[in-house]
């Protein structure tokens, strides 16, 4: 496992995605449609807890949808090729990093569209900087948890259905902490109070990545 390997793999992921721009477009369209449906459905200002919950539900499903491709787009041939080029731990770290970047962009874009359609009433008393930080961290956290799950689901040879079943209970600790932290930010809690949750999310991220790093080599070999 080397840094060069990881950066090389990251570059490869990026180039692959650049070539299949439809995938990125699809993800964005998914989020925008979901938000638009909510906009049509609710009409009028939402109370803060509902506004918060709705946002995270949309982002959760967007994450499942975006990350399920992560290991699925590889056919057997390319897998063997990757296997000869790089160690499994580099692969999983590069994938996690790339997915985290994807989710970071996706969650911030989702927030933008969400605010655009559903209004900023809920942000009235919010610590906006804190809220954006939590959204970014939450996106990264979802990516960290779901990368290994996506690899397992891809190995099991089934798609989104299995990934949702496997991922949902595992992602809940992260999701609940993130929702609580973002609720705190929306309620305007001072940083000294809310930082516990934010640090906790970071710790959970680190733990998850460490677990993926530890377990992935066993998944990789056939």
């Amino acid at each position: 496992m080397e840094l060069r390997e990881i950066t090389g793999l990251l570059r490869m992921e990026f180039l692959l995605d650049l070539r299949q721009r439809a995938a990125w477009g699809g993800m964005l369209l998914y989020v925008v449609s979901a938000i638009y449906v909510c906009y049509l459905g609710v009409r009028g200002a939402l109370p803060v807890p509902v506004w918060n919950a709705l946002f995270w539900i949309i982002l959760l499903f967007a994450a499942f949808n975006a990350l399920v491709r992560s290991f699925q787009r590889e056919d057997a041939g390319r897998q063997v090729y990757l296997y000869t080029l790089a160690g499994p731990r580099s692969v999983v770290l590069a994938r996690t990093l790339y997915n985290a970047l994807t989710m970071l962009v996706l969650s911030l874009l989702s927030l933008l569209f969400y605010v655009l359609f559903l209004g900023t009433d809920a942000l009235g008393e919010a610590q906006v900087g804190q809220f954006v930080l939590v959204v970014a961290l939450g996106g990264v956290g979802l990516a960290a948890v779901l990368t290994l799950i996506s690899a397992i689901a891809a190995r099991a040879g089934s798609g989104l259905g299995l990934m949702a079943i496997l991922g949902f209970p595992v992602v809940l600790p992260m999701l609940l902490s993130v929702m609580r932290a973002s609720k705190g930010a929306l309620d305007g809690l001072p940083w000294s109070v809310n930082s516990t949750y934010v640090l906790w999310i970071v710790a959970l991220d680190v733990l998850t990545v460490a677990l993926a790093w530890l377990l992935f080599p066993y998944l990789w070999r056939d």
């Binding site: 397992i152 190995r155 209970p169 600790p173 066993y218």
Partner: peptide, 19 residues
């Protein structure tokens, strides 16, 4: 394959659940 996948999921999920 089932044995390996199940074991990996079990370990991953167990640690997160414990937390």
């Amino acid at each position: 394959k089932r044995a390996r996948l199940a074991a990996i999921y079990n370990i991953f999920a167990f640690v997160l659940m414990l937390v």
